[in-house]
Design a protein around this nucleic acid. Structure first.
Length: 284
DNA sequence: ACCTAAACCTGGGCGC
DNA sequence: TGCGCCCAGGTTTAGG
């Protein structure tokens, strides 16, 4: 699913292909996806792209920004008028726009940015940019995000957040208000790497286990980034290409297969309403 | 404040 | 072939 590594991969692509482009027209085909007035973005040039947890913010040079969350199945795909770069990804995406294309940003020089979303869970909001640093903190989604691994989540903060809680550790890792950026794939894999049972109550973890888990979260997110994210469902990067981390899952999606560490069979249970994969032999 | 579970939504996989 | 059912999960919302 789109988690920190997937959304960061998208951010890098948007940053690379959109900055300097002017937005000439916006076509909204499914109105519930977009809130705010798209007239504010017409004629503005893209300055940069930021990421907050799993959320994206495209900053414009006129005081407005395009905030977005792709949730489970959203895609931002950039198409260059001349090179038709998206053709490289025909198998996964096909010709655009398609029936899942809900918003189209027409850029100068013939560039086009498509927003596709099969399940229509994602959203795009036209907002005022606010002050340069942290100016979005007063916007709904972004203001409640907890610290983020690889950024401002220090080990001491991690301990402070995790150790008092009575919820299963996996639910805590996935709670964006506590820690932002980690979703189901990386929570499962981090807990495996740290050899911790996902059902354990957060407060039951020893200092040593917390250290291992903190390191494991950083490690699996780095692996995800290195492979350009994991393609489950519809995730693709800005050029419509799949990620590679799904080929390197430690336990996620591996029910019935052998544990890479001990050879036991990976189990799947439901925890906090989500599919949870683990090796009951390795994870205690 | 903490915790759980349903709702949002639709394609894909399965059983029949 | 195709129908009906269930599942997937990030976030929000409702409720215990």
């Amino acid at each position: 699913m789109p988690e920190l590594p997937e959304v960061e991969t998208i951010r890098l692509g948007l940053q690379k292909y959109l900055v300097g482009h002017r937005i000439e027209k916006v076509e909204v085909r499914l109105s519930k996806i977009v809130t705010g007035d798209t007239k504010h973005v017409i004629g503005a040039k893209v300055k940069g792209v930021r990421r907050f947890g799993k959320g994206l913010v495209i900053d414009l040079d006129n005081g407005y920004s395009i905030a977005a969350h792709i949730k489970l199945t959203g895609q931002f795909i950039y198409q260059d008028a001349k090179t038709q770069r998206v053709k490289a990804s025909k198998e996964k995406v096909g010709t655009l726009p398609n029936k899942f294309t809900h918003v189209i940003f027409h850029l100068d020089k013939g560039g086009v940015l498509h927003y596709n979303d099969v399940r229509q869970f994602g959203w795009i909001r036209i907002i005022e940019s606010g002050p340069p640093a942290g100016g979005l903190k007063d916007q709904s989604f972004f203001k409640d995000l907890g610290p983020e691994p690889l950024k401002d989540l220090t080990f001491s903060k991690f301990v402070k957040i995790v150790s008092p809680l009575n919820a299963p550790i996996k639910a805590v890792l996935m709670d964006q208000k506590k820690i932002s950026g980690v979703g189901n794939i990386y929570a499962n894999d981090a807990l495996f790497l740290a050899r911790i049972d996902p059902r354990r109550k957060a407060k039951s973890l020893s200092h040593k286990e917390l250290q291992k888990l903190n390191g494991a979260i950083v490690e699996v997110l780095k692996r995800g980034l290195q492979y350009g994210g994991a393609t489950e469902l519809n995730y693709v990067n800005v050029l419509g290409q799949e990620g590679g981390y799904q080929k390197h899952f430690l336990v996620y999606g591996r029910e019935g297969e052998k544990c890479h560490n001990c050879g036991a069979i990976i189990k799947k249970i439901k925890l906090a309403g989500r599919g949870t994969y683990f090796c009951s032999n390795c994870q205690k």
